[in-house]
Write a protein that binds this DNA or RNA. Structure first.
Lengths: 201, 201, 201, 201
DNA sequence: AATGAATGAGGCTTCATTCAT
DNA sequence: CATGAATGAAGCCTCATTCAT
């Protein structure tokens, strides 16, 4: 009997090892040879776990998708006030994700580039669906906050939710790129604090 | 008599034509042939204006740099109150830039990737310098606003400025990617409104 | 202006150069590097003329197709008696083809292998169509010969035509493989002589 | 107690199982994995019976060689008149072989391709020897037929024998390729009928 | 003996870059 | 100056073969 290998586990290991390279250098600039090298395996062995190079990216997007999906679910189940929910839980979630799956937004960003995932319509819609789900969740929180009198200034919950997400995206991305904020959790907490209360009040 | 060609001008024209492709498909996925094609010139002619493919990217970063530098300068010269300055002028500036140079942040993003610009330390520092200059400008405005009693909630002007920039980045990027906000100016204005006043007040 | 090259001509030149290798060693055993080598060009240059390796084979099949089509046409236009027509013209035609396009049957043979031309249904049907056309032409001659009392022994013209073609195929193939008959024309003539005499007695 | 395996027998079983794939798809297009699959064994186990992939081909050529050798021997022992011998016995023999060892001529064909059997000179000569033996046998029959006054039209027995073999080859090959004749025995019988009548008249 | 994970040579293909015209 | 044919390095991928289990 040959060496016993947990294929799905190994697959994920390779993907995670590739994640670092890809999020640092970009997908195209990262060669399969390099990925194999950091994994300590032979070039050809990568193809025992992935049909092709792009398949590695798919795995990463799926990983990001799952993680984020789980996070959203967890957040939705909490029944706390949005004023608490958003800063406390959200920050924690995002911070954890940042360390876990690294370039989440990098990989999602790929999905939006022309020529990517030509044959992965279902993945593309999965990303879009989750993106929408996220927006909707945020919008609900804002809506609830307005109803409870906590966020009287909310005008269009959906639009404000989109802005909130975009801003968080931008802050996380910049953090990932080695710029400020150095401490992501602190930065996000401060940002949400301001966004919810305002600089002027 | 040879046709007289304004080298720097033509150089810029090619770069601008390439910008759209690159910001949509990514640098690696865009071939020199394609760039030449949209410019209506021959593949080989690109090399009359650029030493190599990466040089096109350099030109684009420089263009972004210049444009942004000019915008910052223009904004700094205004002596209006930050409460006005930030929303009014900033939004206008960003919107104009978005239409002019498209993927500004995309190109800056490249500069941060490992393996890029190995030989372009000076460009890298230019970007860093401008980034810092931008942060400082924003920080000054926030500082001034705090001093004037307009932004009493500002605690660490530099940190808050970084958050502001990152958020604007994220919103612009998402707009560029075809997601919300559909109307960038409106979105930015609303965002700044909230950021400065808060959702709760 | 760059070197002026007659693309279609060069394409055919490469294909013809490849023909020799392919008919001797087989398609798979012949590498693009080798083909380029015998053409005295760089490996990559092959792809200026062919979309991919299989495309070379397509060109060869097309060449064979055209040559054979023209030959059939030429033969059909003659109104001589089949007893003359078949040996005289056919032998001449086949011999000429053998020297011109070498491994005609080798390439047609490929078309019948599973996994070949997956995306070339139209080529496959072209070959089938021409094959049928050839059979029909032979059958007509045999039919006419029977009607004229020259070939009284013909029973099923279509079936006999198929046998005739298959036999010629086999003789040509064997000649091409360096076995007997050494002199193809002489061999074919002798074969037809015997076969037709059998049909006439 | 280890499972006792009849190595030579198993070897042949694998080769026979591979034969179908190889004669349909070609040797190069058939992977060792596929061969193992149709045999219901593991890829690595193939190498317990064959030194390498080409060795499988060798086995098949040997099998074809043996079968044909035996057939020739059997035919030679019959003392019937060639006019009977050739159609009756030959057809039966060939038909049986066609069902037994499938692509006989395909495998012999490989042996003639450059680059094959570089290290198998003895195999090559075995094929050549058998080929010659076959020709000689046919030639003898024709010769005897001429001597007996049955085939007065035979001029050069060796040459005519070569044509006969080539033609049979072509007809069998075409049948194997799924083209006419659908009924090989019937086709061959008809062919020989015509060809011999031509030789006799 | 049997297995299938691992290896790596080698094939096909792309494309940035050069250069003869 | 402009062109595009030609080049060749380098990338992705396949698959015959090996070998630890």
């Amino acid at each position: 009997m040959p060496k016993i290998v947990d294929k799905p586990k190994r697959r994920r290991e390779i993907a995670v090892a590739a994640m670092d390279l890809i999020s640092k250098k970009g997908f195209e600039r990262t060669s399969v040879r390099e990925i194999a090298e950091v994994c300590g395996i032979a070039k050809g062995s990568v193809y025992d776990y992935f049909a092709n190079k792009e398949d590695i990216l798919i795995e990463l997007v799926n990983l990001a998708l799952e993680t984020w999906q789980a996070a959203i679910l967890r957040l939705k189940q909490k029944s706390a006030s949005p004023a608490i929910l958003i800063p406390e839980l959200l920050v924690e979630t995002i911070e954890q994700m940042a360390s876990e799956i690294g370039g989440l937004f990098v990989f999602f960003g790929y999905a939006r580039q022309e020529g990517s995932y030509a044959q992965h319509a279902e993945l593309f819609s999965a990303i879009t669906a989750l993106s929408n789900e996220t927006s909707r969740t945020f919008a609900e929180w804002l809506e609830r906050g307005r109803h409870d009198g906590i966020f009287p200034n909310v005008s269009d919950p959906a639009a404000d939710a989109a802005l909130l997400i975009s801003a968080i995206d931008g802050i996380s991305l910049r953090h990932r790129n080695g710029l400020e904020p150095r401490d992501l959790a602190k930065g996000l907490r401060r940002f949400l604090d301001v966004f919810l209360k305002g600089l002027s009040a």
